[in-house]
Design a protein around this nucleic acid. Structure first.
Lengths: 227, 227
DNA sequence: TCAAAAGTGTTGACTCTACACCCATGT
DNA sequence: ACATGGGTGTAGAGTCAACACTTTTGA
């Protein structure tokens, strides 16, 4: 047979919005190769484990969160020979969009995991370990595109949220301001995007905002247009 | 290490439009498992071979065509344990959109390759070998979605084509008729979608149509809307 | 002259943008 | 009262669907 066995890993692009800023979860490598460099979290797929299960397991190990309004989807597969100096390693990258989980659990693997501003990474031109910069770029592109034609932005929000919080998600991911008035009309006018809870939040010195849950719809027709 | 070595293959969803009908390239399996069943073409990734290179090689082996206006992109990766009864096999599926290449070369691997109407497969509920029905469904979804917001429909056409041929591509992929007048305006009015060659074709008993080449644009803004 | 296919004009419905404006609460 | 943020009304530009209409060829 003209082939050889290879190792298969999953790598995760975990995105969240913290303080109106898009952030990605990165780990600092403690062992060679690329020792001391930042990398995407990930690991080997177990013997009898499905790919989505492996991605979910890694996500839980790194962040402690488990499906609480978050979203996980396959991104792309990278297998260029030489991408890992230790041998032929094919990695299936997954994209996760999660609400801000607060302080990260100081678990075994997650000891070195931290949130990093995507804006700073992109302007600073910082190189990640392996081909992880390329994977991160693919994840950001996918996330930015999907907010246009899906309701996935709610995956970044806690179970209940205001329209303003949802708008700040869009602004953080796209790096562009949106008109609050038109955004409100677009979201509330799209059937199934969000669902009113009936309660309000009287936080700061302003009119209390209605609280919403994610609705049943997943696609957005017509799309939310980028400015 | 909590992992095992696995085999990696590429499988191809090769689509074309023949006689105003969307068709997919399938091979009839000559050996077990699934002997005699229809399957997607594909094969093992070679030792020092990149994934896109493996997909391109398989495409050439099966169809004889080589990048002549066609398009090849990664689709998704499937690795559920047990999807191949011979062992743990992870497959990276690729999607190819190609012009009708005429009769298939009677090459070694391609001896049993043939074009199959997608419409008949979908209505007939015919099951392919392995999880290839699922992969085919993913490829069709991707192709149908991409025609909306990209200029990829030209990948189905020969180097020079008329607006009518391009419209028939859309109609075959979507399975829906489109208004010829509005389609013409949309295509010729989008900068970079198509580029006039200056020549015309005087085939049948009608006014000769202008011939076009693909233009430089890849994205479509605003999108071509499905009826 | 007629059929067939290519291409243009026009109208009403819808959507988006931009911004003026009103509503509800804390201090 | 007034600042602060939540939410609604409205006019102009652009796009799309639908269809009447003109143009250019072969038989």
């Amino acid at each position: 047979m003209p082939h050889q066995d290879v190792s298969v890993t999953v790598d995760l692009v975990v995105l969240t919005v913290r303080d109106d800023d898009l952030a990605v979860l990165l780990v600092r490598r403690g062992i060679p190769p690329y020792r001391g460099r930042l990398a995407l979290p990930g690991g080997f797929v177990h013997a009898q484990e499905d790919l989505p299960a492996a991605a979910g397991r890694e996500l839980e190990e790194e962040t402690g969160i488990r499906g609480l309004g978050g979203h996980l989807e396959q991104l792309a597969t990278f297998g260029t020979p030489g991408r890992d100096p230790r041998g032929r390693v094919v990695t299936v990258a997954y994209l996760a969009l999660v609400p801000d989980p607060g302080p990260l659990v100081a678990g075994s693997d997650a000891a070195s995991a931290s949130w990093n501003s995507v804006g700073e990474l992109e302007t600073g031109g910082r190189r990640l370990a392996f081909d992880h910069s390329q994977i991160l770029t693919a994840g950001l592109e996918r996330a930015r595109a999907k907010l246009e034609y899906s309701t996935l932005a709610t995956s970044f929000c806690p179970p209940e949220f205001t329209i303003n919080e949802l708008r700040r998600v869009y602004e953080a991911v796209w790096g562009q301001p949106l008109d609050p008035r038109n955004f409100h009309r677009k979201v509330t006018g799209t059937p199934g995007f969000v669902e009113a809870t009936g309660t309000t939040t009287g936080r700061q010195g302003g009119r209390p905002a209605q609280l919403f849950r994610p609705g049943g719809a997943t696609a957005l027709h017509p799309a939310m247009l980028r400015p």
